[in-house]
Amino acid sequence: MTSAIPLIGGIPAGPELLIILLVLVLLFGANKIPKLARSTGQAMGEFKKGREEVEDELKQMQEGDLSSGTETEATETTEATTEDDDLETEKESST
Score class of each variant (00 low, 15 high):
residue 50 G to E: 15
residue 50 G to S: 14
residue 45 G to N: 09
residue 78 T to D: 07
residue 31 N to D: 02
residue 79 E to K: 10
residue 53 E to V: 01
residue 52 E to R: 04
residue 34 P to N: 05
residue 35 K to N: 00
residue 50 G to Q: 14
residue 39 S to K: 12
residue 84 D to Y: 05
residue 84 D to K: 13
residue 37 A to L: 10
residue 27 L to V: 10
residue 34 P to R: 09
residue 57 E to D: 06
residue 76 E to S: 02
residue 53 E to W: 08
residue 52 E to M: 05
residue 64 G to D: 05
residue 72 T to M: 10
residue 47 F to P: 04
residue 51 R to E: 03
residue 59 K to D: 11
residue 53 E to L: 15
residue 59 K to H: 04
residue 76 E to T: 04
residue 52 E to K: 10
residue 80 A to W: 12
residue 30 A to D: 06
residue 36 L to I: 00
residue 32 K to A: 08
residue 61 M to F: 11
residue 36 L to A: 09
residue 42 Q to W: 05
residue 86 D to N: 03
residue 37 A to P: 02
residue 61 M to H: 13
residue 53 E to N: 07
residue 68 S to E: 12
residue 79 E to T: 03
residue 80 A to K: 03
residue 25 V to K: 15
residue 39 S to T: 00
residue 74 A to E: 07
residue 56 D to W: 07
residue 73 E to R: 14
residue 66 L to Q: 08
residue 43 A to D: 11
residue 76 E to C: 08
residue 58 L to P: 05
residue 52 E to T: 00
residue 44 M to R: 04
residue 69 G to L: 05
residue 39 S to P: 02
residue 52 E to V: 00
residue 43 A to F: 06
residue 58 L to Q: 12
residue 65 D to M: 14
residue 30 A to T: 03
residue 87 L to C: 09
residue 56 D to H: 03
residue 74 A to Y: 08
residue 61 M to N: 06
residue 67 S to R: 10
residue 41 G to C: 06
residue 61 M to C: 08
residue 76 E to R: 06
residue 38 R to L: 13
residue 85 D to V: 08
residue 83 E to G: 03
residue 26 L to P: 00
residue 82 T to C: 15
residue 27 L to A: 14
residue 80 A to N: 05
residue 49 K to D: 04
residue 82 T to Y: 15
residue 81 T to L: 12
residue 32 K to M: 09
residue 40 T to F: 15
residue 70 T to M: 06
residue 78 T to N: 07
